[in-house]
Design a protein around this nucleic acid. Sequence first.
DNA 1: CTTTTTGTTATAGCTATTATATAACAAATG
DNA 2: CATTTGTTATATAATAGCTATAACAAAAAG
Lengths: 126, 126
Amino acid sequence: MLIFIEPESEKPIYQQIRDQIVEGIARGELLPGTGLPSIRQLAADFGINLHTVNKAYELLEREGFLQVRRKTGAVVQPRGRLAEDWEARLRTLLAEALAQGLPAEEILMRCQRVLATLTEREQPDR
Amino acid sequence: MLIFIEPESEKPIYQQIRDQIVEGIARGELLPGTGLPSIRQLAADFGINLHTVNKAYELLEREGFLQVRRKTGAVVQPRGRLAEDWEARLRTLLAEALAQGLPAEEILMRCQRVLATLTEREQPDR
DNA sequence: CTTTTTGTTATAGCTATTATATAACAAATG
DNA sequence: CATTTGTTATATAATAGCTATAACAAAAAG
């Protein structure tokens, strides 16, 4: 799985890494048990500091996506719990679209379409 | 429309104000043309600084939700454009739920339910 | 056991963000 | 004209994001 960093983005680098790994898990490219590159390895690849990658891994561990161990590196977790504020964030995002005049049906179709792009040609665990 | 501020929240105060006004517009409680309290008035009500409210209004104006005029105060805009990164933010949010094991159908139902709570008993403009 | 790699922890410095506090200016209302 | 309002300008303080070193401890490899 490839990760792209945009240093000029307004989104913090550690957040970019976090989001792309989450999406990788969602797409099924990163299955439970999959090992991720070491902190120093990733930092070297991107030409960024060790602590920036560490912060991303730390966050992913707190959120239940990864388990970080010594020497083994980060390993994708079988499952976790949805963040408590997830629905609140969804609410704010959907409200934004409604407030700009998008019909609820149109918004729902967009959700459906995005979900489809995330779940297509992916092997669900059996 | 009532606005609640949580000073201890990790979400910035100006962002809390922004989000709640957006939701007010989405729910139809704030119709186009509706006047909002003045910057100084809101700041006094919340016991916060003038500039914090100003930042929220400034953001809402940039996003096309409000038009801010002298003396008249802020007025809800008829319509705007959806932010370019809206779909990207939706994607990240939905990926988070998928990665935690929620089935796509369940996620879509949650979207539908949230949309329903935002659009219920609201007078669409005619 | 020794060496290497790795996660962890601890500082430190720098920039940007968030929030506050005053102050002053300009435009619109009454 | 006087008041209210948005706007602009500084200044200060706390926090967040990122970088830079350095050192320590645990696990794997030789």
